[in-house]
Each structure stands twice: as structure tokens, then as C-alpha cells.
Simulated scan of single mutants.
Amino acid sequence: MESYTAEERAALAPYFTNLDRPIFALVNLPEVVKGALFARYSRSPKSLRRLFLDEFASAGPPSGPAPGLDTTRAERLYERVFFEYGDDSVAQLGGVHLACEGASNILTKALEWGRLMAYLEQSTRYIPYDDRPGGHYRYHVPGELTGALREQYVATLDRAFDVYREWLPRLRAFYEAKHPRGGEAEGVYRSTIRAKALDTLRGLLPAATTSNVGIYGTGQGYEQLLLRLRAHPLAEVRACADLMLVELRKVIPAFLKRVDVPDRG
């Protein structure tokens, strides 16, 4: 896990339910900051807490209901994503408690149809997976695997990532030759070429490749999600559910009281 200085921990503590586990919730943040933070999450190799420190925690002293936050940057990011990129999926990442009074039963059924949640995952189209943090490629090794099978699994996935890493610069060179730079800025051109190379190669990445996922949902949605995860055959999924439940109960405990009820119908 990533470590933080004492100063960084002090800046993070008001806004994250923990600083030393991979599952955590965001608290005390304006909707615009939470949404912008998750929007950046999908196109950055950084952890969410590191992104917050680097890009959204202002250097000024804490003040007001949201101390030490750069909401201006968040608003600019939304404007750029909406109007320049035409990507409206980030609108899923902000939430509002909305009252609809005097609604007919027909209207209430239309409003309540489905239990949707919003998800944003770190994109293999924008983030290269050729690094080896801690000396290991970014993939999960299931705890269920032991002995020779585990060794074979690790060797196979290492080879897949080796091929990915070997071909990444080759494909960049290929696309640079195929698509010479025109009038666009250098940074834009390089980003486009990299995206083409990453998009071509991401089919090599195995299902065990690890990523970051941002989730926004209602208490009801989380309850159903947790019930499904806790019944999953894979230990990784069940462990994630346990960590999620701990963090969610710090934020919306009243909505999750039934998750632990045996034989809940």
C-alpha cells in the first residue's frame, strides 16, 4: 500500500474513511470535487488519495465547510470534459437528494425503475501497464492457487506482460509512421499515438490485471451489490465485500443493517 507523510495524512484524514486499506469511502467533499476526482481517476495511474493530494488539495489553510479544497479546478475539469471532449459519463459521478412531491403512482414507478449505480474504471486505453511496482506486474494472484499451479500461473502472466511491455514502444513507432504529426500540438499528438498503441495492446492483458474502480450508488444499490459479492465463489471478491461493508458503514450505516441478517429474503 502507498505510504503518506504526516502532513499528507493530516490533509487526507477529513475526506477518506481510512488511509491504509485498498477499500475506502469519500466523505465531507463537495459533489463537484468527488465527481471530478473520479473523472481523473480513470485516466491516471495514481491512487485516488494521491490524486487528491496532487491535484485537489490546495496549499492554503483549511477554512469553511470544505477546508483546503480546490473546487475551481474541479469545475474547470467538468467544463473541459463536457464541452471539449463531449464525454457526459462523468455526470453519473455526482449525486443529489431530490424530492418529487405530489407524484402519481405511475410517476413513482417510472422514477423507481431499476437500481442503477455508476462505475468508472481505470482505463487500459489511457494507462500503460508496463511498469512493475514493487517488482511485480499489476495482476492479482488468487489465494486459492498454491504450489506448482501458482508458479505456472505467475510465469504465464509474467510472460503476457513481458510481451505487452516489449510491443508498446514498437506500436508507438508504428503509429507515428502511419499517422505523421499534422498541425496539432505535440502533447495532443503524443497522447493520441499512445492511446492507439495502448488500445491495440490491451487485448493482451489478462483478466487478472488489477485496476481502480470508482463507484457511486444508493444505499439500496450497495446493499444488493454486497449481497451478491459475499456469495461469490472467489475469495478476492468476498474479501472486497467485507472491506466495502466496513467503509460503507462509516458513511451510511442505517442502509446496511440487513446485510448481515442470516437467510435474508
Rank of each mutant, 00 (worst) to 15 (best):
A177L: 12
V154L: 08
R181I: 11
R50D: 09
L145M: 06
L29W: 00
G64C: 07
R9Q: 15
L227K: 13
W113R: 15
H232Y: 12
G64T: 07
I215Q: 02
N212M: 12
F52Y: 15
V33Y: 00
L107Y: 04
W167T: 01
D199S: 15
D242K: 13
R49P: 01
V246Y: 02
G94R: 13
L120A: 13
C240W: 04
Y153S: 07
R230T: 10
R115W: 04
G265L: 14
Y139A: 08
D88R: 10
I23D: 03
Y137A: 09
T146V: 13
Y85I: 05
L93W: 11
Y222D: 00
S63D: 14
G68Y: 02
C240V: 08
G221L: 05
L111Q: 08
A207S: 12
A91P: 00
V237A: 10
L245M: 06
L201P: 02
G134K: 09
A231S: 14
G187C: 01
F16I: 11
R150G: 04
P142D: 07
H136G: 00
D87K: 07
R181Q: 15
S123C: 10
S44K: 07
R172Y: 03
A185D: 14
A195Y: 00
A6T: 14
D263W: 04
V163H: 10
L145C: 09
A110W: 00
P14I: 06
N18A: 12
A207I: 03
S44D: 12
F161G: 03
Y85T: 13
A110M: 11
T72M: 04
G182E: 08
R190Q: 11
E186L: 10
E7P: 00
A235C: 01
R202P: 01
F161Q: 01
H232D: 15
H232L: 10
Y41C: 14
D263F: 07
L171C: 04
T5D: 02
N212A: 10
G64N: 08
L149Y: 01
L226P: 13
T71H: 04
F52R: 03
V96Y: 11
R21W: 04
V251E: 01
Y139H: 08
L225Y: 07
G135T: 09
N28S: 15
Y15R: 10
F56K: 05
L248W: 01
V81S: 02
Y126C: 10
N18H: 05
A208Y: 09
L205Q: 05
I193S: 05
R43L: 03
G68Q: 05
E112S: 14
L77I: 15
E31K: 10
V81Y: 00
L205K: 04
V141R: 02
I215Y: 06
F38G: 08
L149C: 01
G219H: 07
E247H: 03
R181E: 11
A25N: 06
R43F: 07
A185K: 05
M244N: 03
D158K: 07
L77Y: 14
Y126F: 13
A254M: 13
P206F: 02
G102H: 06
I193H: 04
P180N: 02
L198T: 05
A6H: 11
I106E: 15
Y126G: 00
S63K: 12
D70V: 09
D242H: 09
A231C: 06
Y119R: 09
E247Y: 00
R9V: 01
T156E: 13
R230D: 06
N212W: 09
R228F: 08
T200H: 06
T124Y: 04
A99T: 09
